[in-house]
Simulated assay, not measured.
Amino acid sequence: MTSSSTSTPVREIESAGNPTRFARGWHCLGLVEQYRDGKPHQVKAFGTSIVVFDTSEGLKVLDGYCRHMGANLAKGTIKGDSLACPFHDWRWGGNGRCTGIPYAKRVPVAAKTRSWPTMERNGQLFVWHDPQRSQPTEEVTIPEIEGWEDGQWSDWSWQTFLVEGAHCREMVDNVVDMAHFFYVHLVFPHYFRNVFEGHVATQYMHSRSRPDIDPENSYGGEDSELRSEASYFGPSYMINPQQLEVGGKTVEAVLINSHYPIDSSSFLINFGVATRREPGVDPEQARAVADGLTQTLTYGFGQDVEIWRDKARIDNPLLTEQDGPVYQLRRWYEQFYVDVEDIEEDMTQRVEVEIDTEHAVGTWKREVEENLAAMKGA
């Protein structure tokens, strides 16, 4: 008689490889202030090189290499509202038009380079990418964080991570991955729900810190309670309002979790934390809380990054019901990798899934109790 273990075929990992196309949407390049130093900045993204420079009308983004003889414009200088090439001093305006060639009698009619749509919001710089060269619409814009323009939040406590050898999809998968929050981010996710609709994918989570870990890597200790609502607006930018209950006090924070692709197998993570300023609270104290939360998040992201760097791309993950709507999320994510006219209804229709966490939390509590007992006996 053949046993069930031998009659069940071995499941093979399937992978079509990383897409060579880059997602359509707004991508955060970092904080506005980092580009306002009077110098051009080279950014490697979307399989190419772009250059960011400041003008009287705000930050502008152009293709990174001069259309004259190919010099790197990031090595040039800002002259007025134009970016001057270091090779022959051709001047390029933020709209992509050549504004002057000092040694030439006239500017050629064809003297134009690509200008990328940009937006400054929430203290951050965004660039729009679309292989079809479309212009962004209000329907897919990045929302403003309530109270940001009114100074109700601390400055951003900002961090970056370079992830090589992996595609951006690995990061987006975390939206539905309830279980990894216990093993990687060291919390009990005792409530977990996902909602996808249109260009927005949201994760609702309530969690508590684990008492068997280093307090420096904890959100606030064993008695803390974190309520989180994290939404991707498009393929790469997440706004995550959080309420942390610690010792009878509430700390209100907002996390930005964003990334942009460098090429098909590497991406850069930009994330930061700001805390809401409370009446009578010193701004430095608010920033200190944000720095503390960022330190905790940095630990978790560092754990994620190490896993992404070494894992295999898998298009047919073997799942349990507690693993969440992975396939539905990936179908939602596909809308950003096809032409607009090829977006299908099931990519944007509403999907809502709540995970039953009772069994998982019960198992994890027993594991934590065993860990604490072992620590006391050591």
Rank of each mutant, 00 (worst) to 15 (best):
S4G: 00
E222K: 15
F161M: 06
T118G: 01
D339A: 15
L29G: 00
P40W: 02
Y65I: 07
D310L: 07
R193A: 13
R276Q: 15
A286N: 09
P117A: 09
A230Q: 07
E216V: 06
S265Q: 14
E358C: 01
L372I: 11
C168R: 06
M119Y: 04
H129R: 04
H190I: 00
L73Y: 11
L83A: 08
I314L: 10
F22D: 01
R208E: 06
F182K: 05
E344N: 06
T298G: 06
K365H: 03
M171A: 13
V187N: 01
I142S: 07
G362N: 15
D155F: 02
I50D: 02
P325D: 09
T137E: 10
V52C: 10
V340S: 12
R114G: 00
E334I: 03
G76M: 02
F267D: 10
S224G: 07
G80Q: 10
T55S: 14
D150M: 09
F336H: 12
E222G: 04
H190A: 01
R91Y: 08
P19D: 09
R276E: 11
W332N: 03
T48P: 06
S207V: 09
V51E: 02
H190V: 01
D323W: 07
R350W: 03
W148H: 11
D310T: 15
G302H: 01
M375C: 00
F336M: 13
D81I: 14
K376G: 00
V273K: 03
H68K: 03
A378M: 08
E170N: 06
F22G: 04
K365S: 01
W332I: 05
Q322D: 12
T160K: 15
K112F: 10
L255S: 03
N174D: 11
R366C: 04
